[in-house]
Simulated scan of single mutants.
Amino acid sequence: MTKTLSGPMLPPRSAPAKHLMVMLHGYGSDGADLLPIGQHWSGNLPDFLFVAPNAPDVCAINPGGYEWFPLKTDRTLSRVEGAEHSRPIIVNFLIDLWAQTGLKPADTILLGFSQGAMMTLHVGLSLDEPLAGIVAFSGALIPPPGLVDGLTPKTPVAILDGDLDNVVDPNLSREAVETLTGLGYDVSYHRATRTAHGISEDMLDFALSFILAQSI
């Protein structure tokens, strides 16, 4: 049986929605954890529908939260295997959202934090059509099929991290920037100073400016 996603959403201030933001939470968390970002940005993005699905599996170490993939001893291998497992679930969720709302990939921002940021990059860079933009906070690039061969659309990407992050090495963000830039992607990058594993105010401001710059 194919797994489906569900979670909280925040309706647009001005209906009907003209844009969509799908937000993917971190390991052991849930969709409600990221919904305040939508509340924070809703004044600047009044025609956005914000959707924050819970990951498909209950978190192994926190039964009150969810995971996009389990953490194993070999983190690199678990990321690759886990991303491949969850990618079609997220893609199907996006396809259903577009069908239900009448919106399109070009109207959509895909945003994620930590493990959700890894999935955001992995999924967003695997689609047949470009999104309006991808925003990845404190994540890493797990290349989807076709990326290195230049077979995927060049969606604009914003990558953000904190210089004191001891959960996800910020050098993984830097590597993602270098890889995607080398492949011809338009990448905006911001490293927040004195910031651990989280989303600071200046990271939010940078991400919002990126979103507004995508003709939205």
Rank of each mutant, 00 (worst) to 15 (best):
G43C: 04
G43H: 02
N44I: 00
L45M: 09
P46T: 08
F48E: 00
L49I: 05
F50L: 01
N54M: 08
N54H: 15
A55L: 00
P56R: 08
P56T: 06
V58Q: 09
C59P: 03
C59H: 13
I61E: 10
N62L: 08
N62G: 10
P63L: 09
W68F: 04
W68H: 07
W68I: 02
P70V: 00
P70M: 03
P70N: 02
L71C: 05
K72C: 13
R75G: 00
L77I: 14
L77G: 13
R79S: 11
V80P: 03
E81C: 04
G82P: 09
S86K: 03
R87E: 11
I89S: 04
L94R: 01
I95T: 15
L97K: 12
A99G: 14
Q100H: 14
Q100C: 12
T101C: 09
A106D: 14
A106W: 04
D107E: 13
I109L: 11
I109F: 08
L110P: 08
G112Y: 00
Q115W: 07
G116H: 03
M119C: 01
T120Y: 04
T120K: 10
T120L: 05
L121P: 01
H122C: 10
G124T: 04
G124A: 02
L125Y: 05
L127W: 05
D128L: 11
E129Y: 13
P130H: 13
P130C: 12
A132T: 08
V135D: 02
F137W: 09
S138F: 00
A140M: 06
A140K: 02
P143S: 11
P145Y: 05
G146E: 14
V148T: 08
L151G: 09
P153H: 13
P156K: 12
V157N: 03
A158L: 06
A158K: 02
